[in-house]
Design a protein around this nucleic acid. Structure first.
Lengths: 271, 271
DNA sequence: CAAATAGTGTCTCTAAGACAATATCAC
DNA sequence: GTGATATTGTCTTAGAGACACTATTTG
Protein backbone atom coordinates (compact mmCIF):
# COMPACT_ATOMS: atom_id res chain seq x y z
CA UNK A 1 0.00 0.00 0.00
CA UNK A 2 1.55 3.24 -1.21
CA UNK A 3 1.19 6.07 1.26
CA UNK A 4 -0.03 9.53 0.44
CA UNK A 5 3.33 10.89 1.52
CA UNK A 6 5.16 8.79 -1.05
CA UNK A 7 2.72 9.79 -3.73
CA UNK A 8 3.21 13.49 -3.04
CA UNK A 9 7.00 13.15 -3.01
CA UNK A 10 6.91 11.78 -6.54
CA UNK A 11 4.31 14.19 -7.84
CA UNK A 12 5.33 16.83 -10.36
CA UNK A 13 2.88 19.53 -11.38
CA UNK A 14 5.37 20.88 -13.89
CA UNK A 15 4.73 17.94 -16.18
CA UNK A 16 1.57 19.61 -17.41
CA UNK A 17 1.21 22.91 -19.18
CA UNK A 18 -0.03 25.71 -16.97
CA UNK A 19 -1.45 29.14 -17.71
CA UNK A 20 -0.20 32.39 -16.23
CA UNK A 21 -2.75 33.92 -13.89
CA UNK A 22 -3.46 37.60 -13.37
CA UNK A 23 -5.79 39.71 -11.27
CA UNK A 24 -7.29 42.88 -12.73
CA UNK A 25 -9.21 45.45 -10.73
CA UNK A 26 -11.95 47.82 -11.85
CA UNK A 27 -11.78 50.42 -9.09
CA UNK A 28 -14.65 52.88 -8.94
CA UNK A 29 -15.07 56.13 -7.03
CA UNK A 30 -17.86 58.67 -6.83
CA UNK A 31 -16.57 62.23 -6.82
CA UNK A 32 -18.31 65.54 -6.32
CA UNK A 33 -17.94 68.11 -9.05
CA UNK A 34 -17.56 71.83 -8.53
CA UNK A 35 -20.89 73.39 -7.71
CA UNK A 36 -22.57 75.37 -10.46
CA UNK A 37 -23.91 78.03 -8.11
CA UNK A 38 -22.86 79.08 -4.64
CA UNK A 39 -25.96 77.60 -3.07
CA UNK A 40 -26.53 74.58 -5.28
CA UNK A 41 -25.25 71.16 -4.22
CA UNK A 42 -22.47 69.63 -6.31
CA UNK A 43 -23.24 67.04 -8.98
CA UNK A 44 -21.64 63.62 -8.74
CA UNK A 45 -19.68 61.58 -11.26
CA UNK A 46 -18.78 57.91 -11.39
CA UNK A 47 -15.05 57.48 -12.00
CA UNK A 48 -12.95 54.48 -12.98
CA UNK A 49 -9.21 54.13 -12.42
CA UNK A 50 -7.15 53.27 -15.51
CA UNK A 51 -3.43 53.19 -16.19
CA UNK A 52 -1.62 54.01 -19.39
CA UNK A 53 0.46 51.05 -20.45
CA UNK A 54 4.17 51.87 -20.50
CA UNK A 55 5.32 48.67 -22.20
CA UNK A 56 4.22 46.19 -24.79
CA UNK A 57 1.75 44.83 -25.58
CA UNK A 58 -0.88 47.56 -26.11
CA UNK A 59 1.82 50.14 -25.32
CA UNK A 60 0.33 53.58 -24.77
CA UNK A 61 -3.23 52.26 -24.46
CA UNK A 62 -5.32 52.44 -21.32
CA UNK A 63 -5.93 49.36 -19.19
CA UNK A 64 -7.16 48.23 -15.80
CA UNK A 65 -4.55 48.01 -13.08
CA UNK A 66 -3.52 44.42 -12.45
CA UNK A 67 -0.72 41.92 -12.74
CA UNK A 68 0.59 38.43 -12.31
CA UNK A 69 -0.23 36.20 -9.38
CA UNK A 70 2.85 35.40 -7.34
CA UNK A 71 3.57 32.29 -5.35
CA UNK A 72 2.40 32.46 -1.75
CA UNK A 73 -0.43 34.94 -2.19
CA UNK A 74 -4.15 34.59 -2.85
CA UNK A 75 -5.68 36.23 -5.89
CA UNK A 76 -7.34 38.84 -3.68
CA UNK A 77 -3.96 39.68 -2.18
CA UNK A 78 -2.49 39.91 -5.66
CA UNK A 79 -5.25 42.28 -6.75
CA UNK A 80 -4.65 44.55 -3.76
CA UNK A 81 -0.89 44.48 -4.20
CA UNK A 82 -1.04 45.33 -7.89
CA UNK A 83 -3.45 48.21 -7.58
CA UNK A 84 -1.38 49.67 -4.76
CA UNK A 85 1.85 49.30 -6.72
CA UNK A 86 0.49 50.72 -9.94
CA UNK A 87 -1.78 53.48 -8.70
CA UNK A 88 -1.01 53.99 -5.02
CA UNK A 89 -4.71 53.58 -4.20
CA UNK A 90 -6.01 51.08 -1.66
CA UNK A 91 -9.59 49.80 -2.06
CA UNK A 92 -12.11 49.38 0.76
CA UNK A 93 -13.64 46.26 -0.67
CA UNK A 94 -13.04 43.73 -3.41
CA UNK A 95 -15.64 41.67 -5.15
CA UNK A 96 -15.02 39.01 -7.79
CA UNK A 97 -16.78 39.59 -11.11
CA UNK A 98 -15.59 36.63 -13.10
CA UNK A 99 -12.72 34.86 -14.73
CA UNK A 100 -11.71 35.68 -18.28
CA UNK A 101 -10.05 32.69 -19.83
CA UNK A 102 -10.55 32.76 -23.61
CA UNK A 103 -7.30 31.28 -24.93
CA UNK A 104 -6.66 34.16 -27.36
CA UNK A 105 -7.41 37.04 -24.98
CA UNK A 106 -3.75 38.00 -24.44
CA UNK A 107 -1.20 38.23 -27.28
CA UNK A 108 1.61 37.25 -24.90
CA UNK A 109 0.19 33.77 -24.57
CA UNK A 110 -1.95 31.69 -22.28
CA UNK A 111 -2.98 34.12 -19.57
CA UNK A 112 -6.22 34.03 -17.62
CA UNK A 113 -7.51 36.99 -15.68
CA UNK A 114 -9.47 37.11 -12.45
CA UNK A 115 -11.47 40.30 -12.45
CA UNK A 116 -12.53 42.22 -9.35
CA UNK A 117 -14.68 45.28 -8.77
CA UNK A 118 -13.64 47.56 -6.01
CA UNK A 119 -14.68 50.74 -4.43
CA UNK A 120 -12.60 53.68 -3.32
CA UNK A 121 -13.92 56.28 -0.93
CA UNK A 122 -13.21 59.86 -1.99
CA UNK A 123 -11.34 60.68 1.22
CA UNK A 124 -8.71 57.97 0.80
CA UNK A 125 -7.87 59.33 -2.65
CA UNK A 126 -7.26 62.88 -1.39
CA UNK A 127 -4.61 61.44 0.91
CA UNK A 128 -2.52 59.63 -1.64
CA UNK A 129 -2.46 62.23 -4.38
CA UNK A 130 -0.95 61.28 -7.73
CA UNK A 131 2.77 61.44 -7.05
CA UNK A 132 4.69 58.70 -8.81
CA UNK A 133 1.61 57.43 -10.60
CA UNK A 134 1.17 60.03 -13.31
CA UNK A 135 0.18 57.30 -15.71
CA UNK A 136 -2.83 56.41 -13.52
CA UNK A 137 -5.93 58.53 -14.03
CA UNK A 138 -9.58 58.61 -13.08
CA UNK A 139 -11.88 58.40 -16.10
CA UNK A 140 -15.47 59.49 -15.93
CA UNK A 141 -17.80 56.63 -16.81
CA UNK A 142 -20.92 56.36 -18.91
CA UNK A 143 -22.47 52.96 -19.63
CA UNK A 144 -25.74 52.85 -21.51
CA UNK A 145 -27.79 50.63 -23.74
CA UNK A 146 -28.44 52.25 -27.10
CA UNK A 147 -31.46 51.93 -29.38
CA UNK A 148 -30.31 48.72 -31.03
CA UNK A 149 -29.68 46.93 -27.74
CA UNK A 150 -25.91 47.27 -27.75
CA UNK A 151 -24.07 48.71 -24.77
CA UNK A 152 -21.95 51.82 -25.11
CA UNK A 153 -19.17 52.29 -22.62
CA UNK A 154 -17.64 55.76 -22.69
CA UNK A 155 -14.63 56.67 -20.55
CA UNK A 156 -13.34 60.21 -20.64
CA UNK A 157 -10.42 62.00 -19.00
CA UNK A 158 -9.62 65.46 -20.30
CA UNK A 159 -9.13 65.10 -24.04
CA UNK A 160 -8.87 61.33 -23.91
CA UNK A 161 -12.09 59.60 -24.86
CA UNK A 162 -12.44 55.82 -25.04
CA UNK A 163 -15.68 54.53 -26.55
CA UNK A 164 -16.27 50.80 -26.52
CA UNK A 165 -19.24 48.94 -27.97
CA UNK A 166 -20.43 45.65 -26.50
CA UNK A 167 -23.21 43.15 -26.81
CA UNK A 168 -24.71 41.20 -23.94
CA UNK A 169 -24.94 37.42 -23.93
CA UNK A 170 -27.19 35.78 -21.39
CA UNK A 171 -26.31 32.25 -20.52
CA UNK A 172 -28.55 30.31 -18.13
CA UNK A 173 -28.64 31.22 -14.42
CA UNK A 174 -28.80 34.96 -14.95
CA UNK A 175 -25.12 34.97 -15.87
CA UNK A 176 -24.34 37.62 -18.46
CA UNK A 177 -21.18 37.93 -20.50
CA UNK A 178 -20.25 40.91 -22.64
CA UNK A 179 -18.73 40.49 -26.04
CA UNK A 180 -16.59 43.26 -27.45
CA UNK A 181 -17.70 44.71 -30.78
CA UNK A 182 -15.28 47.64 -30.60
CA UNK A 183 -12.71 47.88 -27.83
CA UNK A 184 -12.59 51.69 -28.14
CA UNK A 185 -8.88 51.78 -27.52
CA UNK A 186 -8.85 49.79 -24.30
CA UNK A 187 -6.13 47.16 -23.95
CA UNK A 188 -6.77 43.39 -23.98
CA UNK A 189 -10.42 42.44 -23.31
CA UNK A 190 -10.65 45.06 -20.61
CA UNK A 191 -13.73 46.67 -22.16
CA UNK A 192 -15.63 43.46 -21.43
CA UNK A 193 -14.21 43.27 -17.91
CA UNK A 194 -15.28 46.84 -17.21
CA UNK A 195 -18.77 46.18 -18.54
CA UNK A 196 -19.11 43.11 -16.34
CA UNK A 197 -17.80 45.04 -13.35
CA UNK A 198 -20.23 47.91 -13.87
CA UNK A 199 -23.10 45.58 -14.32
CA UNK A 200 -22.19 43.77 -11.11
CA UNK A 201 -21.71 47.06 -9.27
CA UNK A 202 -25.14 48.33 -10.30
CA UNK A 203 -26.78 45.19 -9.06
CA UNK A 204 -24.99 45.44 -5.73
CA UNK A 205 -25.80 49.10 -5.31
CA UNK A 206 -29.44 48.20 -4.63
CA UNK A 207 -28.12 47.02 -1.31
CA UNK A 208 -27.50 50.04 0.89
CA UNK A 209 -24.69 48.29 2.72
CA UNK A 210 -22.62 48.40 -0.47
CA UNK A 211 -23.01 52.17 -0.72
CA UNK A 212 -21.30 52.71 2.63
CA UNK A 213 -18.02 51.64 1.05
CA UNK A 214 -18.20 54.78 -1.10
CA UNK A 215 -18.94 57.11 1.81
CA UNK A 216 -16.88 58.73 4.57
CA UNK A 217 -17.70 57.85 8.16
CA UNK A 218 -20.16 60.71 8.50
CA UNK A 219 -22.32 61.84 5.63
CA UNK A 220 -25.54 63.65 4.85
CA UNK A 221 -28.48 61.69 3.52
CA UNK A 222 -28.34 63.69 0.31
CA UNK A 223 -24.72 62.61 -0.23
CA UNK A 224 -25.81 59.03 0.42
CA UNK A 225 -28.60 59.36 -2.11
CA UNK A 226 -26.43 61.02 -4.77
CA UNK A 227 -23.86 58.25 -4.53
CA UNK A 228 -26.46 55.57 -5.07
CA UNK A 229 -28.04 57.49 -7.94
CA UNK A 230 -24.67 58.02 -9.58
CA UNK A 231 -23.80 54.35 -9.48
CA UNK A 232 -27.16 53.03 -10.52
CA UNK A 233 -28.07 55.79 -12.94
CA UNK A 234 -31.57 56.17 -11.53
CA UNK A 235 -33.30 58.74 -9.36
CA UNK A 236 -35.56 58.57 -6.33
CA UNK A 237 -37.59 61.26 -4.59
CA UNK A 238 -35.65 62.56 -1.57
CA UNK A 239 -38.46 61.93 0.89
CA UNK A 240 -38.80 58.33 -0.19
CA UNK A 241 -35.07 57.76 -0.09
CA UNK A 242 -34.87 59.00 3.49
CA UNK A 243 -37.58 56.59 4.49
CA UNK A 244 -35.86 53.67 2.81
CA UNK A 245 -32.47 54.18 4.41
CA UNK A 246 -33.81 55.13 7.84
CA UNK A 247 -33.17 51.64 9.15
CA UNK A 248 -29.52 51.61 8.05
CA UNK A 249 -28.26 54.90 9.49
CA UNK A 250 -28.25 56.73 12.79
CA UNK A 251 -28.16 60.45 13.52
CA UNK A 252 -25.14 62.31 14.80
CA UNK A 253 -25.40 65.70 16.47
CA UNK A 254 -23.35 67.38 13.76
CA UNK A 255 -24.59 69.45 10.82
CA UNK A 256 -23.09 70.75 7.60
CA UNK A 257 -23.53 74.53 7.50
CA UNK A 258 -22.59 77.32 5.14
CA UNK A 259 -24.20 76.07 1.92
CA UNK A 260 -26.77 78.81 1.45
CA UNK A 261 -29.63 76.58 2.48
CA UNK A 262 -30.88 74.61 5.43
CA UNK A 263 -28.04 72.74 7.17
CA UNK A 264 -28.00 68.98 6.67
CA UNK A 265 -27.60 66.59 9.57
CA UNK A 266 -24.68 64.18 9.39
CA UNK A 267 -25.50 60.52 9.76
CA UNK A 268 -23.40 57.45 10.29
CA UNK A 269 -23.84 53.78 9.50
CA UNK A 270 -25.90 51.96 12.10
CA UNK A 271 -23.97 49.45 14.30
CA UNK B 1 11.45 52.04 -31.79
CA UNK B 2 10.83 48.39 -30.99
CA UNK B 3 7.64 47.06 -32.48
CA UNK B 4 5.03 45.08 -30.58
CA UNK B 5 5.74 42.12 -32.83
CA UNK B 6 9.41 42.05 -31.87
CA UNK B 7 8.50 42.37 -28.22
CA UNK B 8 6.14 39.42 -28.37
CA UNK B 9 8.66 37.28 -30.24
CA UNK B 10 11.12 37.71 -27.39
CA UNK B 11 8.58 37.33 -24.62
CA UNK B 12 8.70 34.24 -22.43
CA UNK B 13 5.94 33.55 -19.92
CA UNK B 14 7.79 30.52 -18.64
CA UNK B 15 10.33 32.68 -16.90
CA UNK B 16 7.87 33.22 -14.07
CA UNK B 17 6.38 30.66 -11.76
CA UNK B 18 2.81 29.77 -12.59
CA UNK B 19 0.11 27.94 -10.65
CA UNK B 20 -1.87 25.01 -11.92
CA UNK B 21 -5.51 25.89 -12.48
CA UNK B 22 -8.52 23.68 -11.94
CA UNK B 23 -12.28 23.95 -12.29
CA UNK B 24 -14.54 22.27 -9.73
CA UNK B 25 -18.28 21.92 -10.09
CA UNK B 26 -20.95 21.68 -7.42
CA UNK B 27 -23.79 20.11 -9.40
CA UNK B 28 -27.19 20.11 -7.74
CA UNK B 29 -30.38 18.28 -8.58
CA UNK B 30 -33.81 18.17 -6.99
CA UNK B 31 -35.26 14.68 -6.92
CA UNK B 32 -38.66 13.38 -5.92
CA UNK B 33 -38.77 10.75 -3.22
CA UNK B 34 -41.10 7.78 -3.13
CA UNK B 35 -44.53 8.86 -1.99
CA UNK B 36 -45.52 7.95 1.55
CA UNK B 37 -49.15 7.21 0.66
CA UNK B 38 -50.85 6.33 -2.60
CA UNK B 39 -52.52 9.73 -2.82
CA UNK B 40 -49.91 11.96 -1.24
CA UNK B 41 -47.49 13.90 -3.43
CA UNK B 42 -43.81 12.94 -3.19
CA UNK B 43 -41.39 14.89 -1.04
CA UNK B 44 -38.36 16.48 -2.65
CA UNK B 45 -34.69 16.32 -1.78
CA UNK B 46 -31.76 18.50 -2.77
CA UNK B 47 -28.91 16.36 -4.05
CA UNK B 48 -25.24 17.10 -4.74
CA UNK B 49 -23.00 15.11 -7.04
CA UNK B 50 -19.73 13.87 -5.48
CA UNK B 51 -17.07 11.46 -6.64
CA UNK B 52 -14.97 9.11 -4.57
CA UNK B 53 -11.32 9.84 -5.17
CA UNK B 54 -9.54 6.86 -6.69
CA UNK B 55 -5.99 8.20 -6.33
CA UNK B 56 -3.89 10.29 -4.01
CA UNK B 57 -4.21 12.75 -2.44
CA UNK B 58 -7.30 12.26 -0.26
CA UNK B 59 -7.65 8.76 -1.72
CA UNK B 60 -11.00 7.22 -0.89
CA UNK B 61 -12.49 10.50 0.26
CA UNK B 62 -15.35 12.29 -1.46
CA UNK B 63 -14.79 15.37 -3.58
CA UNK B 64 -16.42 17.61 -6.15
CA UNK B 65 -15.94 16.61 -9.76
CA UNK B 66 -13.31 18.76 -11.45
CA UNK B 67 -9.87 18.81 -12.94
CA UNK B 68 -7.05 20.68 -14.57
CA UNK B 69 -7.50 23.41 -17.15
CA UNK B 70 -6.04 22.42 -20.50
CA UNK B 71 -4.57 24.66 -23.12
CA UNK B 72 -7.06 25.95 -25.66
CA UNK B 73 -10.19 25.79 -23.50
CA UNK B 74 -11.94 28.30 -21.27
CA UNK B 75 -12.52 27.48 -17.63
CA UNK B 76 -16.22 26.99 -18.30
CA UNK B 77 -15.37 24.47 -21.01
CA UNK B 78 -12.99 22.74 -18.63
CA UNK B 79 -15.70 22.52 -15.97
CA UNK B 80 -18.17 20.98 -18.42
CA UNK B 81 -15.59 18.55 -19.80
CA UNK B 82 -14.50 17.35 -16.38
CA UNK B 83 -17.96 16.76 -14.98
CA UNK B 84 -18.93 14.89 -18.14
CA UNK B 85 -15.78 12.74 -18.01
CA UNK B 86 -16.00 11.95 -14.33
CA UNK B 87 -19.73 11.54 -13.82
CA UNK B 88 -21.31 11.34 -17.28
CA UNK B 89 -23.70 14.14 -16.34
CA UNK B 90 -24.13 17.31 -18.40
CA UNK B 91 -25.33 20.45 -16.61
CA UNK B 92 -27.95 22.89 -17.95
CA UNK B 93 -26.23 25.96 -16.60
CA UNK B 94 -22.98 26.98 -14.95
CA UNK B 95 -22.45 29.87 -12.63
CA UNK B 96 -19.15 30.99 -11.13
CA UNK B 97 -19.05 31.06 -7.32
CA UNK B 98 -15.51 32.17 -6.70
CA UNK B 99 -11.85 31.37 -6.94
CA UNK B 100 -10.10 29.47 -4.19
CA UNK B 101 -6.45 30.36 -4.17
CA UNK B 102 -5.05 29.95 -0.66
CA UNK B 103 -1.49 28.74 -1.28
CA UNK B 104 -1.81 25.74 1.05
CA UNK B 105 -5.18 24.50 -0.15
CA UNK B 106 -3.80 21.56 -2.14
CA UNK B 107 -1.05 19.26 -0.82
CA UNK B 108 0.20 18.62 -4.36
CA UNK B 109 1.38 22.21 -4.63
CA UNK B 110 0.32 25.53 -6.01
CA UNK B 111 -3.13 24.85 -7.42
CA UNK B 112 -5.99 27.33 -7.62
CA UNK B 113 -9.57 26.29 -8.15
CA UNK B 114 -12.34 28.04 -10.02
CA UNK B 115 -15.61 26.91 -8.51
CA UNK B 116 -18.93 26.70 -10.33
CA UNK B 117 -22.48 25.87 -9.28
CA UNK B 118 -24.57 24.02 -11.72
CA UNK B 119 -27.96 22.56 -12.02
CA UNK B 120 -29.07 19.23 -13.39
CA UNK B 121 -32.64 18.53 -14.35
CA UNK B 122 -33.96 15.21 -13.10
CA UNK B 123 -34.85 13.96 -16.58
CA UNK B 124 -31.32 14.26 -17.96
CA UNK B 125 -30.04 12.07 -15.12
CA UNK B 126 -32.49 9.26 -15.81
CA UNK B 127 -31.05 9.03 -19.31
CA UNK B 128 -27.41 8.60 -18.39
CA UNK B 129 -27.72 6.12 -15.58
CA UNK B 130 -24.62 5.24 -13.60
CA UNK B 131 -22.73 2.89 -15.91
CA UNK B 132 -18.98 3.45 -15.75
CA UNK B 133 -19.29 6.06 -13.05
CA UNK B 134 -19.95 3.93 -10.01
CA UNK B 135 -17.68 6.15 -7.97
CA UNK B 136 -19.98 9.13 -8.63
CA UNK B 137 -23.00 9.41 -6.34
CA UNK B 138 -25.76 11.84 -5.47
CA UNK B 139 -25.62 12.91 -1.81
CA UNK B 140 -28.61 14.41 -0.09
CA UNK B 141 -27.83 17.87 1.24
CA UNK B 142 -28.59 19.67 4.46
CA UNK B 143 -27.06 23.08 5.16
CA UNK B 144 -28.14 24.89 8.30
CA UNK B 145 -26.95 27.46 10.76
CA UNK B 146 -26.80 26.05 14.29
CA UNK B 147 -27.38 27.81 17.57
CA UNK B 148 -23.87 29.19 17.88
CA UNK B 149 -23.90 30.73 14.41
CA UNK B 150 -21.80 28.06 12.75
CA UNK B 151 -22.95 26.36 9.57
CA UNK B 152 -23.46 22.62 9.47
CA UNK B 153 -23.19 20.96 6.09
CA UNK B 154 -24.42 17.36 6.07
CA UNK B 155 -24.13 15.15 3.00
CA UNK B 156 -25.54 11.64 3.12
CA UNK B 157 -25.64 8.76 0.68
CA UNK B 158 -26.74 5.42 2.09
CA UNK B 159 -24.46 4.68 5.02
CA UNK B 160 -21.97 7.38 4.10
CA UNK B 161 -22.41 10.55 6.09
CA UNK B 162 -20.16 13.58 5.72
CA UNK B 163 -20.64 16.34 8.29
CA UNK B 164 -18.66 19.53 7.86
CA UNK B 165 -18.63 22.54 10.15
CA UNK B 166 -17.99 26.03 8.82
CA UNK B 167 -17.95 29.62 9.93
CA UNK B 168 -18.99 32.56 7.77
CA UNK B 169 -16.74 35.53 7.19
CA UNK B 170 -18.27 38.66 5.74
CA UNK B 171 -15.88 40.90 3.90
CA UNK B 172 -17.14 44.21 2.51
CA UNK B 173 -19.49 44.25 -0.49
CA UNK B 174 -21.72 41.46 0.74
CA UNK B 175 -19.04 38.94 -0.16
CA UNK B 176 -19.04 35.99 2.22
CA UNK B 177 -16.36 33.39 2.57
CA UNK B 178 -16.67 30.19 4.51
CA UNK B 179 -13.87 28.92 6.67
CA UNK B 180 -13.64 25.23 7.40
CA UNK B 181 -13.71 24.23 11.06
CA UNK B 182 -14.14 20.55 10.33
CA UNK B 183 -14.01 19.22 6.79
CA UNK B 184 -16.20 16.24 7.71
CA UNK B 185 -14.26 13.91 5.45
CA UNK B 186 -14.47 15.96 2.28
CA UNK B 187 -11.29 16.29 0.23
CA UNK B 188 -9.29 19.53 -0.14
CA UNK B 189 -11.25 22.66 0.80
CA UNK B 190 -14.33 21.33 -0.94
CA UNK B 191 -16.51 21.80 2.13
CA UNK B 192 -15.98 25.55 1.79
CA UNK B 193 -16.63 25.44 -1.94
CA UNK B 194 -19.88 23.55 -1.41
CA UNK B 195 -21.00 26.02 1.26
CA UNK B 196 -20.29 28.94 -1.06
CA UNK B 197 -22.09 27.21 -3.90
CA UNK B 198 -25.17 26.49 -1.78
CA UNK B 199 -25.25 29.98 -0.49
CA UNK B 200 -25.06 31.34 -4.03
CA UNK B 201 -27.70 28.90 -5.24
CA UNK B 202 -30.12 29.92 -2.52
CA UNK B 203 -29.74 33.56 -3.40
CA UNK B 204 -30.36 32.84 -7.06
CA UNK B 205 -33.36 30.67 -6.39
CA UNK B 206 -35.35 33.77 -5.45
CA UNK B 207 -35.34 34.43 -9.16
CA UNK B 208 -37.92 32.14 -10.77
CA UNK B 209 -35.95 32.01 -14.00
CA UNK B 210 -33.25 30.04 -12.18
CA UNK B 211 -35.75 27.41 -11.08
CA UNK B 212 -36.64 26.53 -14.66
CA UNK B 213 -33.19 24.96 -15.05
CA UNK B 214 -34.28 22.33 -12.51
CA UNK B 215 -37.57 21.57 -14.22
CA UNK B 216 -38.65 19.55 -17.25
CA UNK B 217 -40.29 21.38 -20.15
CA UNK B 218 -43.78 20.84 -18.76
CA UNK B 219 -44.48 20.85 -15.05
CA UNK B 220 -47.23 21.39 -12.52
CA UNK B 221 -47.15 24.50 -10.38
CA UNK B 222 -46.81 22.33 -7.30
CA UNK B 223 -43.66 20.76 -8.75
CA UNK B 224 -42.36 24.26 -9.45
CA UNK B 225 -43.08 25.31 -5.90
CA UNK B 226 -41.54 22.21 -4.33
CA UNK B 227 -38.33 22.71 -6.26
CA UNK B 228 -37.97 26.27 -5.07
CA UNK B 229 -38.81 25.32 -1.50
CA UNK B 230 -36.30 22.49 -1.55
CA UNK B 231 -33.49 24.71 -2.75
CA UNK B 232 -34.23 27.65 -0.51
CA UNK B 233 -35.38 25.69 2.51
CA UNK B 234 -38.43 27.89 3.03
CA UNK B 235 -42.15 27.44 2.43
CA UNK B 236 -44.85 29.54 0.86
CA UNK B 237 -48.63 29.13 0.82
CA UNK B 238 -49.71 27.49 -2.44
CA UNK B 239 -52.18 30.21 -3.35
CA UNK B 240 -49.60 32.92 -2.97
CA UNK B 241 -47.01 30.98 -4.92
CA UNK B 242 -49.38 30.58 -7.85
CA UNK B 243 -49.98 34.31 -7.88
CA UNK B 244 -46.26 35.09 -7.81
CA UNK B 245 -45.29 32.82 -10.69
CA UNK B 246 -48.32 33.57 -12.83
CA UNK B 247 -46.34 36.03 -14.94
CA UNK B 248 -43.56 33.53 -15.69
CA UNK B 249 -45.55 30.53 -16.90
CA UNK B 250 -48.26 29.73 -19.41
CA UNK B 251 -50.90 27.01 -19.36
CA UNK B 252 -50.84 23.93 -21.53
CA UNK B 253 -53.94 21.83 -22.20
CA UNK B 254 -52.45 18.77 -20.51
CA UNK B 255 -53.14 17.46 -17.02
CA UNK B 256 -51.53 14.96 -14.70
CA UNK B 257 -54.13 12.36 -13.67
CA UNK B 258 -54.19 9.25 -11.56
CA UNK B 259 -52.86 10.62 -8.28
CA UNK B 260 -55.93 10.14 -6.11
CA UNK B 261 -56.77 13.80 -6.11
CA UNK B 262 -57.74 16.60 -8.44
CA UNK B 263 -55.61 16.53 -11.64
CA UNK B 264 -53.00 19.25 -11.96
CA UNK B 265 -52.61 21.31 -15.09
CA UNK B 266 -49.20 21.25 -16.74
CA UNK B 267 -47.55 24.61 -17.38
CA UNK B 268 -44.56 25.68 -19.41
CA UNK B 269 -42.13 28.56 -19.18
CA UNK B 270 -43.48 31.71 -20.82
CA UNK B 271 -41.75 32.76 -24.09
C1' DC C 1 -67.85 9.44 1.53
C1' DA C 2 -62.93 10.49 2.92
C1' DA C 3 -58.43 12.04 1.89
C1' DA C 4 -55.70 14.62 -0.55
C1' DT C 5 -54.25 18.11 -3.80
C1' DA C 6 -55.69 21.83 -7.31
C1' DG C 7 -57.13 26.21 -7.82
C1' DT C 8 -59.69 30.91 -6.71
C1' DG C 9 -60.89 34.85 -4.05
C1' DT C 10 -60.38 38.17 -0.43
C1' DC C 11 -58.64 40.65 3.58
C1' DT C 12 -54.70 42.82 5.59
C1' DC C 13 -50.26 44.81 6.04
C1' DT C 14 -46.13 46.77 4.36
C1' DA C 15 -43.19 49.17 1.34
C1' DA C 16 -42.51 52.06 -2.45
C1' DG C 17 -43.91 56.04 -5.49
C1' DA C 18 -45.97 60.65 -5.82
C1' DC C 19 -46.44 64.85 -3.97
C1' DA C 20 -47.51 68.54 -0.71
C1' DA C 21 -46.05 71.28 3.12
C1' DT C 22 -42.92 73.10 6.40
C1' DA C 23 -38.01 74.37 8.19
C1' DT C 24 -33.72 76.72 7.86
C1' DC C 25 -29.98 78.88 6.20
C1' DA C 26 -26.68 82.34 3.04
C1' DC C 27 -26.91 85.94 0.44
C1' DG D 1 -37.14 88.30 1.01
C1' DT D 2 -35.34 84.75 -2.42
C1' DG D 3 -33.42 80.59 -3.76
C1' DA D 4 -32.05 76.49 -2.56
C1' DT D 5 -31.92 72.25 0.07
C1' DA D 6 -33.50 69.62 4.39
C1' DT D 7 -37.04 67.22 6.53
C1' DT D 8 -41.67 65.53 7.63
C1' DG D 9 -46.11 63.83 6.55
C1' DT D 10 -49.92 61.96 3.76
C1' DC D 11 -52.31 59.66 -0.05
C1' DT D 12 -52.18 55.95 -3.18
C1' DT D 13 -50.93 51.68 -5.16
C1' DA D 14 -48.56 47.11 -5.88
C1' DG D 15 -47.30 43.01 -3.88
C1' DA D 16 -46.70 39.58 -0.29
C1' DG D 17 -48.66 36.83 3.60
C1' DA D 18 -52.66 34.64 5.76
C1' DC D 19 -56.57 32.19 5.20
C1' DA D 20 -61.05 30.60 3.73
C1' DC D 21 -63.51 28.36 0.30
C1' DT D 22 -64.57 25.63 -3.90
C1' DA D 23 -63.31 21.84 -7.40
C1' DT D 24 -61.90 17.30 -8.64
C1' DT D 25 -60.15 12.94 -8.41
C1' DT D 26 -59.25 7.80 -6.47
C1' DG D 27 -59.93 4.25 -3.24
Amino acid sequence: MDSEKEFLAGYDLEKYERPSVTADVAAFMVSSEDRTSYRRNPENKLLLLLIKRGGHPFKGMWALPGGFLQKGETIEECALREIKEETNVLPNALKPVGVFSEPERDPRGWIISNAYVSVISEESVEQVGSDDASDAQWFSVSFKQNGSGEYELALTYGDVELRALLTEEKSGFGVTRFRIRDSGGLAFDHAAIIAAALSSLRTDARNFETIFDFLPEKFTLTEFQKVQETIMNVSVLPGNFRRMVSGYVEETEEFVRGDGHRPARLYRRKQ
